[in-house]
Design a binder for these strands. Structure first.
Lengths: 144, 144
DNA sequence: TATTGTTATACTCTATAACTATA
DNA sequence: TATAGTTATAGAGTATAACAATA
């Protein structure tokens, strides 16, 4: 195969992606910590800021067991960032939703994520377009 | 600034990088689990397979507190994958090193990381070269 | 005095299993 | 019976503070 791991070029690209991954995570955790949130709490809050979501659906998004979501939402709820609402159609379901304050925190969190700007600012628009297309092809994403 | 977050193109690239990060992590954890290791344990083992390393240096590489390394190395040592050696130059220092078995596990772990091949195989050599250069520029890495 | 590794402690995230209330 | 959420439990990673051995 052309892109085997022994290929030095492929190896180099994999190393670079590893660096991107490490930097992305470090920045995300750091941004979350600025708002006294863990990475997981920040992820859930960001999710709920977009759209109220049943507990089970949150677990699917995070790819973890549903039982874990209870505690995570508990901690966010204790801080007034999230609330549980009943589902009118199914009384078993609880829908977690960001409060007004939670949406504000989510917005500030997003704003403090510098990863978007700093590194990409070094590329021209044309280069960013090429990067986008390569990443899309690499990930097998349809170019809409 | 040209590459602000409100720029749709930049937003698209950031989303793609987020996808890469998520996929990379999922694959890494999965590969580690195949060898009954956690992600952190796999990371430390991979590190030590390259080079024996003092405890404190491991903490620096992982960007965590040195006290945590004790337990992680304990668990790897209990499974015979790692051993502690004295430092001849400084009797305070303990150097963690992968055992023969540990190096074997690290190698099999690396081999089971398909992330390198699968996605990049979809790009031509020329495209991989362009991707490498863009990532290097983005990360502010000198082109060797 | 300063540094290295460790211990003790507390918190969070994680999976598993059992429970409850609904469906 | 099956499903949604919860509780209980145990293991792992993390930070903080205090400690022993060594520099």
């Amino acid at each position: 195969m052309a892109a085997s791991r022994t290929d030095p070029l492929t190896f180099e690209v994999v190393e670079l992606i590893g660096t991107v991954v490490a930097r992305y995570h470090a920045e995300y955790e750091q941004a979350a910590a600025k708002h006294a949130l863990t990475g997981t709490q920040a992820r859930v809050l960001a999710l709920l800021a977009v759209e109220p979501t049943p507990m089970r659906r949150i677990a699917q998004r995070l790819k973890c067991e549903p039982s874990n979501i209870t505690g995570i939402v508990d901690r966010l709820e204790a801080r007034g960032l999230v609330e549980r609402r009943p589902d009118p159609n199914d009384r078993r379901v609880k829908i977690a939703a960001a409060t007004e304050e939670g949406r504000g925190t989510a917005r500030r969190l997003r704003d403090s994520l510098d990863f978007a700007r700093e590194p990409l600012a070094q590329l021209s628009e044309e280069e960013r377009r090429v990067l986008r297309d390569l990443l899309q092809r690499m990930l097998g994403v349809e170019g809409r």
